[in-house]
Design a protein around this nucleic acid. Structure first.
Lengths: 194, 194
DNA sequence: GTCTATAATTAGATAGAC
DNA sequence: GTCTATCTAATTATAGAC
C-alpha cells in the first residue's frame, strides 16, 4: 500500500523524495537560513519554481527534512534493538557516531546543527526538532532503564548532550579525533555504570 | 590612551560600540543568516545605510561581534583567576553558566550557536570562532593542569563539550532545569577528580 | 568626516500556461 | 496533474549629498 505524503498526487517521478533528500543534505551543509530553494532544487535536479508544486513554502520543505531525520532515527534504533544487551545497543549507537566523525568535523551533527538554528524560532519548526530529539533521548533512556539504573533520564540527557557538545567542538576545531577520543570516554562511562 | 578599532575615525558618538553590542545580542537571538543589517541598526538606533560607514561588510560586523565575545571571555577568566583554587575557579565558571540558563533555554549558548552556524563556513569567520573557543578550552585546561591532572586537555574538552551539549538540549527542550541538573553533575565530577 | 537616497541583486512565492 | 515565466519584497551595498 502506497503512503500518501500529502504532496499533490504523490508522483511516480520521485521528485518529492529527491527534494527531501537534497534538502536534508544541503540544510546540513549550509544551514537553514543560508540555503535557498534554488540550492535544494539544483541538487535534487528539479526546476526551481517547480518546488512549490510539491511544497507550499520553504518551511514545509524544512519540516519534511526534519521528518526524514525522524524516520532515519527510527530505522537506526529499530536496527539497534536487535542487539542483545542495552550496553551493546548504546555502544553501537556511539560507534555509528564515531563513523560519522569526518562529516561532523566539516558540518557538525546533521541534526544538532539543525536544532541549534531552529531552536531560536517559535513557529512550530522548533517543536518539530524537539520531537525528534525527544525520540533519541527516550530511546537512550530506555536502555539505561533496562540496565537497572534508577536515574535513566538524567543519564540519557548526559549521553546525548555529550555527543552534541563533542560534535560542536569537533566541527569548531575541524578535528575528527576529538569525536574519537571523547566517544571513547563515553564508552568507558557506560561500562562503569553496568 | 584610546584604542583605535579600525573604524573610520573612531567617533565619540559611540555608534560603532552600539552596533557591535546590538550585533552580539541580535545574532544570538536570531542567528547570523536570519539577521539583517536593518535588524542590528534598529536595535543600535543607527540609520540602516549608515552601518556601512562603520563596517565595510556584514561579515566584518559579525567578526566584530566575535571579537566582543573574546573580550568578554577574557574579562570573565581574569575575574575568575582571582579565586584561590582551580576547583573554585571552574565551579564559578559553571555557576555563571547556570545563571544564564533562562537565556540558554530561549536562544542557546550565545557563543555556541554562533560557532555552530559559522562552523559550516570556510571563509575566515569559522577560524575566528575557533580562536575564541580555544581561549575557553585553554583556560579550562590550565585549571586541570594546576590540579595536577596528567590529561588536562581531554578533561577541558569534556567540560566545554558537556556545557555546549547541555546548552543545545536546554534550548531544544526549552527547559532551563536541564542546565541546572547537568551542571550539578559536572560539579560533582570536578570534585571526584580532585 | 558623516550620513542618506537609491541601485543591484536575489530571495520566496504565484498566476497561469501546457 | 505538472511545470515555468514572472512578480513582489527584501537584502546587501554604494554613489554621492551634506
Amino acid at each position: 500500500m502506497k503512503i500518501d505524503r500529502g504532496g499533490p498526487a504523490a508522483a511516480k517521478s520521485g521528485k518529492r523524495e529527491r527534494l527531501v533528500a537534497a534538502a536534508s543534505r544541503v540544510l546540513h551543509e549550509q544551514g537553514v537560513e543560508k540555503t535557498t530553494l534554488a540550492d535544494i532544487a539544483r541538487v535534487a535536479d528539479v526546476p526551481v519554481g517547480n518546488v512549490y508544486y510539491y511544497f507550499k513554502t520553504k518551511d514545509q520543505l524544512v519540516e519534511a527534512a526534519i521528518e526524514a531525520h525522524a524516520q532515519g532515527l527510527r530505522a537506526v534504533t529499530a536496527h539497534l534493538d536487535q542487539l542483545p544487551s542495552p550496553q551493546e545497543r548504546l555502544k553501537a549507537l556511539l560507534g555509528g557516531w564515531t563513523e560519522q566523525r569526518e562529516l561532523a568535523a566539516r558540518y557538525g551533527c546533521p541534526f544538532g546543527t539543525l536544532s541549534s538554528e531552529l531552536g531560536k524560532r517559535t513557529d512550530g519548526l522548533d517543536h518539530a526538532t524537539a520531537a525528534v530529539m525527544r525520540l533519541l533521548v527516550d530511546w537512550v533512556e530506555q536502555q539505561f532503564r533496562t540496565m537497572g539504573r534508577d536515574d535513566p533520564h538524567d543519564l540519557a540527557i548526559t549521553l546525548v548532550a555529550t555527543y552534541q557538545g563533542i560534535s560542536l567542538l569537533t566541527n569548531t576545531f575541524r578535528d575528527p579525533e576529538l569525536m574519537t577520543s571523547q566517544i571513547h570516554r563515553l564508552e568507558e562511562w557506560i561500562d562503569s555504570l553496568a
